[in-house]
């Protein structure tokens, strides 16, 4: 069984393909973050359960084969980022910033650390940390 990172069905060669890949990641990451955050913030679902539920829903979302498992992995990574407290995700702009950074980091590092457990969590942590750092700087 291949891990999401091993799946190289979608080769990115041109700038256009890179942008499409990034957009797919962005939509998936945003969906994961938004669903997980909404579940635990508005519906009082335990944080772990919210993230796991988001990942499970995302794993059944069918995407064209050329994208492989990448969108599902991005949804799961987004769910990890969505585990943040409301002190960090204060509004739509924070949610969008985390998603853009997360999708960007995912796209740039798609062939690095393949098959390493916790890679998706590290991407989510990078996205959330960059928001905290940005707030601290400005």
């Amino acid at each position: 069984m291949k891990t999401p990172c091993e799946n190289r069905a979608f080769f990115v060669s041109t700038k256009k393909e890179w942008f499409i890949f990034f957009l797919v990641k962005l939509v998936s990451f945003f969906f994961g973050t938004y669903l997980c955050f909404s579940l635990h913030h508005y519906f009082d679902v335990p944080v772990v359960l919210a993230a796991a539920f988001t990942g499970l829903v995302g794993s059944f979302w069918h995407w064209p084969n050329k994208y492989g498992n990448h969108p599902q992995a991005a949804i799961y990574a987004g769910a990890f980022a969505g585990m943040c407290s409301s002190a960090i995700i204060t509004g739509w702009e924070a949610l969008l910033f985390i998603s853009v950074v997360g999708a960007g980091v995912y796209t740039l590092t798609r062939n690095i650390f393949e098959g390493f457990g916790g890679r998706l969590g590290a991407i989510a942590f990078t996205a959330v940390s960059s928001l905290i750092l940005l707030r601290a700087l400005f």
């Binding site: 990574a77 590290a122 989510a124 959330v128």
Partner: peptide
Amino acid sequence: EGIGGALGCSAFISVA
């Protein structure tokens, strides 16, 4: 606590 992805990042560090 309260920072999303910290759990996954810890797992990544341990795997690394």
